[in-house]
């Protein structure tokens, strides 16, 4: 058990990775950058629990805020519209300040 790797406000990117199997990081956000908006806490890893292994190490879970215009280059709405998504720490990497 260690504390959260990313503080609230940290710019993060969802890793560009496409493994097979049960994954809860949505495909449409892989490689997209946003910022941590809420540290939810530690939970069992769904990528393990989905296969019946319930007792492995827990993972920190965050809510990450994305600007729609950073997710969809052709986003039709105004620039302040956002998405908020729960993402486990193993799917996050530090992103440049430009994404904040």
């Amino acid at each position: 058990m260690s504390g959260p790797r990313f503080p609230v406000g940290a710019p993060v990117r969802i890793r560009r990775a496409w493994p097979p199997g049960h994954v809860r990081a949505p495909w449409y956000l892989r490689g997209r950058s946003g910022a941590i908006c809420h540290i939810i806490g530690e939970f069992g890893n769904p990528e393990e629990m989905a296969y019946g292994r319930y007792d492995g190490p827990k993972l920190m879970l965050y809510r990450v805020r994305f600007r729609q215009v950073d997710v969809w280059p052709d986003y039709a709405g105004p620039p302040q519209d956002t998405l908020q998504v729960e993402v486990y720490e193993n799917w996050l990497e530090a992103a440049g300040e430009e994404a904040a």
Partner: peptide, 9 residues
């Protein structure tokens, strides 16, 4: 407009 995608817990 803030859309929440309930992906986890």
């Amino acid at each position: 407009v803030r859309v929440h995608d309930s992906t986890a817990e």
